[in-house]
Design a protein around this nucleic acid. Sequence first.
RNA 1: GGAGAGAUGCCAGAGCGGUUGAAUGGGCCGGUCUCGAAAACCGGAAUACGGGCAACUGUAUCGAGGGUUCGAAUCCCUCUCUCUCCGCCA
Length: 421
Amino acid sequence: MLQLAVLRNDTAKVKERLAVKNFKEPELVDQIIALDDERRKLSFQFDDTKAKVNATSKEIGGLMAKGQKEEAEAKKADVETFKKTLAPIEQQLASTEQQLTELLLRLPNLPSELVPPGKTPEENVEVRSGGSKPELPAGAVPHWDLAKRYDLIDFELGNKLTGAGFPVYKGNGAKLQRALIQYFLDYNAAAGYIEHQVPHLVNEASAYGTGQLPDKEGQMYHATVDNFYLIPTSEVPLTNIYRDVILKDTDLPVRLTAYTPCFRREAGSYGAHVRGLNRLHQFDKVEIVQLVHPARSYEVLDEMVAHVEKLVQSLGLPYRILRLCGGDMSFASALTYDFEVWSAAQEKWLEVSSVSNFESYQTNRMKARFKEDGKTQLLHSLNGSSLALPRILAALLENNQDGNGIKLPPVLHRYFGSEMI
RNA sequence: GGAGAGAUGCCAGAGCGGUUGAAUGGGCCGGUCUCGAAAACCGGAAUACGGGCAACUGUAUCGAGGGUUCGAAUCCCUCUCUCUCCGCCA
């Protein structure tokens, strides 16, 4: 969430930035500041009265020790009076604080100056592209047909076991998944990201920490008996490792990577968008996360984009990098680059990675901080997919079909064990 | 799943109703000493939110939440987690 100090000191700027994100309730900012004024007033009254209670209670202790019972009783009456005035203040303070937090949670992160204006994905700005779209042989088919032809993925079996969006990978399909995961992890580790294996279910505090709660409650699977959430991305457990942690500046930067399955309810999706591997309820993803000094976060963002770009290039897939416009960005992000690869048989761009700088929006929620020259301050958090598997798989299958099989890019040969499927 | 024990600062660990934000030891930072280091000695050091130009100062925090009390790290209740034993088990 945004820092109160920023809202108070830079109110006009905050509203201007929120407008870029097409935020509909700018008046919330003023409400929040008014509530904070109220909170300060109440907090002062509370502290002041409580100080009297504490001081008097201490005196009572002294009097009791000296055996001055009568005086002590008189003081007790004083405390009684203080406490009577304290009770309503305490209640008001608690409800004001709660309201304040609720409102604060409704404000999205401020977009950086680099974010282009716009409301729809069409207004995203292409910053770079690479590779070239392949010429497909006659009779080329989409990946769901290829998956069937070469017996790589069984969508119907997934329907039987669980439901739509939970495919079963088998044979070379399963092996290729494993090869991709291992290649991605090795690639990230070589760049200094420390590999982690993390829980696939998290508690409420973690879901709040990265911003999945409260606003995206409906997008997560919820194991209600134990009140755990199935992770929609390993960003959640990875970033929350540093919830309520204060690092030393010498610990920075923190670089993490993990492979996990990701679970998303994707409520409201339907039709051609969800065909084949395009949109699943469970999919595999390798993620990278960094926690860095605030002064460096944009430099690091560029570095992460370059890192993912090289990975996509190594797979030989035609791609483009988009800088998301205000309307297409996620709630918590300050700047996001999406990677899309060309899925030649579908003739569609598919999003395979999203690399974002969250600045202090997540770290303020989860109190992930570091200490520099004795001063404690919030870290900046960033993450990106490196990479999401299903759409990579879709593009690899479609783009590399030659009628006899699928030719795999050279980087995968040693992971897959052969050059063709 | 059953029975018991426990959760205190960076770590270990005291405290079990009243100057305890917290003894003591270790670690860490600064200093003295030293050519330098070690040892020894001296000093410093939590987080959040307020008040104050500042020095400084108020409040909260001893797993979390609630309660008892003039006063709670200390007593009571609920929850979470850890450990030991039993059961079960990849």
